[in-house]
Design a protein around this nucleic acid. Sequence first.
DNA 1: TAAATTTTTTTTGACTATCTATATAAGTGC
DNA 2: GCACTTATATAGATAGTCAAAAAAAATTTA
Lengths: 188, 188
Amino acid sequence: MAQLSEGFESVRLSAAHADTWSEDMQDQAETALVALRRVLKATASNVKSVATKTGLTASQLLVLQVLRTQGETLTGDLARAVDLKQATISILIDKLQEQQLVVRRRGETDRRRVWVRLTEKGLTALDGAPDLLQDTFRTRFAQLAEWEQASITAALLRVVSLLNAEKIEASPILDVAGVNDPPLGNGQ
Amino acid sequence: MAQLSEGFESVRLSAAHADTWSEDMQDQAETALVALRRVLKATASNVKSVATKTGLTASQLLVLQVLRTQGETLTGDLARAVDLKQATISILIDKLQEQQLVVRRRGETDRRRVWVRLTEKGLTALDGAPDLLQDTFRTRFAQLAEWEQASITAALLRVVSLLNAEKIEASPILDVAGVNDPPLGNGQ
DNA sequence: TAAATTTTTTTTGACTATCTATATAAGTGC
DNA sequence: GCACTTATATAGATAGTCAAAAAAAATTTA
């Protein structure tokens, strides 16, 4: 999939202009955008490398990660969580099921619904796919002075608020849990 | 494509845990990762919306943006810049050329090489694809106090250095220009 | 209860992006 | 000229995605 996830290509090469622009008010914004751009690049290439390393595609990996975080999940909620259509998820789950990384289970009270959950094999596959980027980030972040951690966190949150404007506010991955039926356990 | 370009899915829902974890050293890192995650989500969905808005795919848009930034570029350098194989770029350029958004031109001293550049139509297509995310970012960033701009920029640069570790350091988009032949003008 | 409607998932068919491997063409060194 | 390398293009295969339709079950309405 690999959708590329770039969004800041049109940033001017502020580094090249730095000497002439140094005092320009806009310079700061451009520098920030270039930095953002690099963050994006780093994460995108990280996703790619983890994906090829595990033999999974990025979407598949994404779905597995959501399942690990949320436990058993409805296919529809999965689709929302990773921003794909249900048709796509359905096929994607087929593939994952063929590899026995997940299992489907029909809902009992409502037999239209289909719950998906990780298998042991799926869990180990995920463990075998350490997210290097995330790990290095955590490791290095932990080594910073506390005030710097705080300042970076604050800045990132600020950036989120700058970006979010009208858009987004969906961010379903972080708040899908507990939508309808008991998501964990064997209930419903 | 959709390649989704996420990289931080496995982040725990630190918001949900915040009350119990508040003093935990790791909490800060998790919060930072969640924030990063949201930045990624925002930019990814932005790319998608801009792409569908213009009828171009994300990769195509990306290539056009690189061309706008760098001027005439070799197909191989394009491939490196957007992290696709040459074969893929070749086909991608075919499509863009069909729509008359770019033109190919054979190198004159080295006739193996193929230069690609934006047409007028390509340029207007790009102008018609305003990057809302980037614009809102710039606008809102500009409204911040100067000290805050500085602190955000510094934090972002710090994040880049945290992420970059061994990896990356390629970041070709920002330094491909002027590799071999005169990239601009009609030289060689 | 029967019929119509809605919800949830799957299937189907088409299209596109991407990759690997191979081919073509042009340059370089001997 | 010959082997080798470099730059791009083509071919074939795989996979991801979507829209539309089908299927199955629940809900509403009459």
